[in-house]
């Protein structure tokens, strides 16, 4: 009856079958809702037009992809569309153009945790290091680069301010998202990894 548990949360237990279930879809929807609230709050608290800075929604993207794989990735794309529309922090066209950047800035941490076999509960130095690099610094750098490119494309920032906006965006987002993400991983992961919604692979 009791299945033998692996030390590594990403490996399948003996005889364990994992397929996408309704539960994953529901959890994704609920997580989009969480992202909408956090994202809208962040956009309204630090309103800088279409530029993002000090946006805690990024933590939801990284953590969502670590816990729920591609479901988190989909949530990373969908919730900014809604929160941007509610907060008025981007038009539908700009939001759609942000979508690939949003996906990348979420899924990078999800990929890194699976690739380097890190524990979402942040138990070791390696876990912290991978989270800091991939879930904090790199993902925000990629997201900011994409976002700035989109704003340039739509002519919403000046060409010479590109580097400054990029730095402000990536550094500004890294701080709140790193703190919120670390809290989520440290305190909520123990519950999530035991749940049906946790994805050891990318879809289940």
């Amino acid at each position: 009856m009791n299945m033998k548990m692996n030390a590594n949360v990403w490996s399948l237990n003996e005889g364990e079958l994992r397929t996408p279930q309704m539960n994953h879809v529901i959890m994704m929807a609920l997580f989009i809702g969480v992202g909408v609230v956090v994202g809208t709050f962040g956009s309204l608290a630090v309103p800088l037009g279409f530029v993002s800075a000090f946006w805690p929604g990024q933590a939801i993207q990284s953590v969502g992809c670590i816990w729920f794989g591609m479901w988190g990735g989909i949530a990373s794309i969908v919730f900014p569309l809604i929160s941007n529309a509610i907060a008025g922090s981007a038009s539908i066209a700009v939001s759609l153009a942000y979508a690939p950047g949003n996906f990348l800035q979420g899924i990078l941490a999800g990929w890194a945790f699976r690739f380097f076999k890190c524990d979402p509960r942040l138990k070791s130095g390696k876990d912290w290091a991978v989270y800091t690099v991939f879930g904090g610094i790199l993902c925000n750098a990629i997201g900011a680069a994409w976002g700035v490119m989109v704003l340039r494309m739509f002519g919403l920032i000046s060409p010479s301010s590109t580097l400054t906006v990029f730095l402000g965006w990536s550094i500004g987002n890294t701080v709140p998202s790193f703190i919120l993400g670390a809290i989520l991983l440290k305190f909520v992961s123990p519950l999530i990894v035991k749940s049906k919604s946790f994805c050891k692979k990318y879809w289940a």
């Binding site: 994704m28 929807a29 609920l30 997580f31 809702g33 969480v34 909408v36 969908v78």
Partner: peptide, 13 residues
């Protein structure tokens, strides 16, 4: 349905 549930979830949150 997912979209509807997401919007509702934001309210419940």
């Amino acid at each position: 349905y997912v979209l509807g549930l997401s919007l509702r979830s934001a309210g419940m949150f």
